[in-house]
Structures are given as structure tokens and as C-alpha cells.
Amino acid sequence: MDHGPGAIAPLFTTCTRCGAEAGYHAGVCVIDGVLHWSVEGGCEACGAGEVGCGRGEVPGHVSAALIAAHGEVVLRAEPLPGTAAARAFKTVREVFGVPLAEVRGRLRALAAEGERGTEPETALPAARLREGGFAVTLEAGEPPSGEKRFATSPGRS
């Protein structure tokens, strides 16, 4: 099993049972080229607890908690000189799952504003883009504020 980058962070929300503040831990990691996420924790006031996990796209509240704790990473990419346009288009379509009509715009956006997310969320497409003939940079985005990040219940995005 090949493990890539991972991160864990606290996630605070309102308990859906009693309304008190509930504390969770949210995590994301890359295993065998797939994003895995998990959330676990609960409410100390009433004892309600939840555990959730999945693969693929990371729910918004999990990503938000990790960004609040660790900061955002910005992935920027451009095809290397000599990379055929067809290969670049194919790579972007495969990595981001966008239709052909949106590839040109996605290429421009990757070079200009980039893709934003957690370290694990950006590391996976960065590796795939490099394999597809792209020059890739990963930069630290805005630093975390240090404030608690309140999110929806872990059962919802």
C-alpha cells in the first residue's frame, strides 16, 4: 500500500441532538493514489457521537477544517515546452473530470489562479499532472487564522 501526504485537524460544529458545541477530528490522506477522508468525534454534553469516512472527493466541511488548521495549498501547472496539446488536454480531462469544452479554460485557470485545497487534495492531482507532462508548483496559500472553524454536521457537506 502506497501512502501519500495526510493531514488531521479539529472540526467544531453544533450538536444536532442537543445544540451544544461538538468536537470532531477530520482527516484526509492519499492511499494508493486515492483520497481517503474521515471524521470522528462527538458531543461531550449529551454523548452523541458520529463516525464518517469515504474515498474520492473530500466533503467541504472536512476540507474547511484542514485549511483552517494548516492553511491552503495552491497548485499551479502549465504544460512543459514540447508537450503536445492533445496530451495536455487529455491529462486535464482525466485529472479533473471536465468535459472537452471546458479544458482550455481549465488550462488557463491552472496557470493563473491555480487549484486550491488541502495538501493531500492538491498533491494527488499534482502528481498526475507531472506524469502528463506539466510543470507543477505547490505554494502555501493564505495562512490559517487560528480561529475555530464551525461547519455543518459531519454527516452533511
Rank of each mutant, 00 (worst) to 15 (best):
G60E: 06
G41W: 08
L66V: 10
F89N: 10
R87V: 14
A48W: 00
A7N: 02
E78I: 05
L75Y: 03
H3Q: 11
T16G: 08
A20V: 01
G60Y: 06
A22T: 00
G42D: 04
E94M: 03
E50H: 15
V73Y: 04
I67H: 01
W37E: 03
H25D: 02
A127L: 13
V28A: 06
E94I: 00
L100R: 15
G41K: 09
A123I: 05
A123V: 04
A135D: 15
A126Q: 09
A48R: 10
G52N: 11
S145I: 01
G56R: 06
E57D: 11
E78Q: 13
R17D: 09
V51G: 10
P144V: 03
E142Q: 14
A69V: 05
E113T: 15
E40M: 14
T137M: 11
F96R: 07
G71T: 06
E139K: 14
V103R: 10
A7H: 05
R156V: 15
C29S: 10
C53F: 14
G54P: 10
L75G: 01
V73K: 03
R106F: 05
G42N: 12
A109R: 07
R55T: 15
V74M: 02
F150I: 00
H25I: 07
P81T: 12
R104T: 11
L11P: 02
G41Q: 07
G105P: 08
V98R: 03
L124W: 06
G155V: 07
E78F: 00
V136T: 10
C46F: 10
E113R: 15
S63F: 04
G54F: 06
A48T: 07
F89C: 05
R130T: 05
A77Q: 07
V30M: 02
A88Y: 00
G60V: 08
E119I: 04
L124T: 13
L110Y: 06
G71M: 06
Y24S: 01
T16K: 08
A26D: 01
M1G: 07
R156W: 15
E72R: 15
L80W: 07
G117W: 14
